[in-house]
Amino acid sequence: MRHFWSSVCAIVWKDLKAEFRTKEMLSAMLIFAFLVIVIFSFAFDPGAQSIKQILPGIIWVGFFFSGILGLNRSFLSEQINDCISGLMLAPVDRAAIYFGKVFANLIQTTLVEAVALPVFIVLFDFSYAGSWLWLIVVILASTFGFVAVGTFLAALASNTRSSEVLLPIILFPVIVPVVIGAVELTKALFAGASISSVMIWLQVILVYDIVFTVVPFLLFDYLLEA
């Protein structure tokens, strides 16, 4: 069991080390998230009062779309030099590969979100008065659900002919509950409502997080059969 988690850490370390050397993926994700804001401000009048209503939606669209870029990469990069076989030969349960990738993706996606969120708020001239703690909890819980199932489906997609195109098509229908929950929660927090009035959504997301950590954990071996 100790070896399992030390392998998970080794994979996270390896992924982050490789990413921070070039920062290719992080910068692409960040620029993409910013582009989403800019495109949305052209699509909707950024000065209108109604913008406060749809800002949470815009933010999450930006997060999910840029997140997909990173997820797509996470297993495709393992195919260069057939590194995935190297991982599969390692003397550890293959679920360690799944968790290593989940945590590496979670850290990268969260970093992008942490930089993008203030920019979103500034560009739409929004002043947030709610609880920052709850906002962070909401963002982390939602991002985890998205990344947990996204990493799993990225592993699936990377093994097919149309990998990059396939991932968004198979991922978005599955994350509908997270999308709804994340937007509803953020909307409530932005409107200054207390978290208890929308607790049900946090529960939905936590249930989702648990289900879509356990099920991929059980099924991951089947994806990685050589």
């Binding site: 093994n159 097919t160 599955v174 994806l223 059969e225």
Partner: peptide
């Protein structure tokens, strides 16, 4: 195999 995995998910 992949279809079965996705069918369950």
């Amino acid at each position: 195999r992949f279809a079965a995995v996705f069918g369950i998910i």
